[in-house]
Amino acid sequence: MTVAVAAAVADGVLPGRVWIYSNYHCNLACSYCLTDSAPGVAKRALTADRMVRVAEQAAELGFDAIGVTGGEPFLAPGMAGTLARIADILPTIALTNGTLFSGARLAALDALAGRDIALQISLDAADPDVNDEARGAENFAQVIDAIPKLVERGIRVRLATTVGDVAPHDAARLCALHRELGVADEDHVVRPIVHRGRAAERAIGVHATRDDLPAELTVTADGAYWSPFGPTVRDGRVDTDLLISRTTDPLAVPAELLLRAVEGRPPGTDTTLNIR
């Protein structure tokens, strides 16, 4: 069956990226956060060794990329070193709010230079007030300050814009801004707010069913999920509707269950909402 997983990835039946939720706590409390993350919430953290083991098993199963997300991953001690270990196994994207890169944390990022890893930083608008309304005071300024420092260090930066709606002139301003910061057009991702987690509590975002979401195997401290949009949190409870299994080691267990769930799904159904 594990051969079937590798074949499914090779054939595009299963997406190649495995996501890892490093932790759920965050120094921010964004209005649309899927995981209801904030300072002081349950950390639901994976250890560094556990994350590396997921990457090792993902590679053995035939997956071809890793994504690390949270919460804010860089709140976990030694995250730069952990990401370097993961990136030595498979190409990696790490999602971060980009607000913690100073002092020792910034210096530690030197470990990522020259490795196959990108840091994907959230920035939702070219207008600081609009951005900061959703993401918190001073967020825009902190992100704008951080990106050039990362680029200078030889770290690839991607920019993720999560929006309910974006007017053409706002998009143009945002694109001009990311180019100015050294982020290439292909590294700018615009995606909708998804109506889960805190966004659901605030009645915002697009409703997404399983078939709207790419079946990207996602590992958390609570189990394995259909997509990184699966292990969302509402009222302190991790949602279970997109849960695949509680077992995550060996990774073959959820990978095979995910493949079974994916087989027979009409092709292309996960692209209509541009959720990524």
Binding site: R210, T240, L243, L257
Partner: peptide, 10 residues
Amino acid sequence: LLGADDAPLV
């Protein structure tokens, strides 16, 4: 006890 809305995929 998980209801239909919370039932995992499988």
